[in-house]
Write a protein that binds this DNA or RNA. Structure first.
Length: 266
DNA sequence: ATGGTAGTTCTACTA
């Protein structure tokens, strides 16, 4: 079974990229972030024609998460129950029966706040949001013994290996500051593994490259898009890798899709 | 320290 997460930076601007990528990659599910539109503008029909049902948790212009799935979707939920006051569309969750059989899986598409800059109001929002997200995924781990895959744009580079140049993008910067990394460690402490770190990885594997300063052609990137897996899925995980090909296409998202492969039940 | 680009929306805001 294959599951992918992709911050597409507008589902409407990237519709053809998504369809072209799905046609060859054919994951069972695709978790999207930064869809940047309400449900009324979401291209449900185009994805259905490609074999995918969609659940959209959107808002106008900013944020927005969705789940596309070739497997039937149940118990779709928009947002976190422990943040009922929060109007920002940053979480979409669904339940699916795994393609290889076995207990139901919970798939969570998450768009963690960027934070602006360290110390800013948006930064405080990010840390507060992450504290609630930790509780939310802890509850999911308990409620779904078959496994939880929380994929998304975490907007945190957990370690120095996840930065093209730690000297240039150091601890005072957004995405790498100590409190952000501590918050990320807090997510793992809820019983999750960063799928990328289950394997020996080469240097220079990133998932996001700034549009500016020719960052992609120089591989000046960060690894901020991740899959967090509970033990039932971590033990079945065969690989976790970004696909940088779509980043080379015309008018790309600034993020690459990241895919985990899970072994089927015996 | 600054600026470089992109999407949404229409003037700035977010990233």
């Amino acid at each position: 079974m294959k599951i992918t997460t992709w911050n597409v930076n507008s589902v409407r601007a990237r519709k053809n990229h998504i369809l072209a990528w799905l046609e060859t990659a054919r994951p069972h599910a695709l978790l999207l972030q930064e869809t940047k539109c309400e449900g009324a503008d979401f291209p449900f029909a185009d994805f259905r024609a490609a074999g995918y049902e969609s659940f959209c948790c959107g808002q106008k212009a900013y944020n927005g998460c969705a789940v596309l799935s070739r497997l039937p979707i149940a118990d779709a939920q928009c947002g976190m129950p422990n943040r009922p006051h929060d109007k920002q569309a940053r979480v979409a969750a669904v339940t699916v029966a795994p393609s290889g059989g076995g207990e139901n899986l919970r798939l969570i598409s998450a768009y963690i706040p960027n934070g602006g800059e360290v110390g800013a109001e948006k930064y405080e929002y990010k840390l507060e949001w992450l504290a609630d997200f930790a509780e939310y995924i802890a509850d999911a781990a308990r409620d779904f013994p078959g496994g939880v895959a929380a994929g998304g744009d975490y907007n945190i580079a957990p370690a120095d290996e996840d930065i093209y140049d730690p000297a240039h993008w150091g601890a005072g910067n957004i995405l790498v500051s100590k409190p952000e990394r501590a918050a990320f460690a807090g997510l793992l402490a809820r019983g999750y593994a960063d799928a990328h770190r289950l394997f020996t990885q080469p240097r220079g594997v990133f998932s996001w490259w700034d549009y500016r300063a020719a960052s992609f052609s120089r591989n000046r990137g960060l690894r901020i898009d991740m899959f967090l897996l509970t033990p039932p899925l971590a033990t079945k995980c065969e690989s976790c890798a970004p696909d940088s090909a779509p980043r080379t296409w015309e008018k790309p998202s600034d993020h690459a899709p990241v895919t985990v492969r899970l072994r089927a039940e015996e």
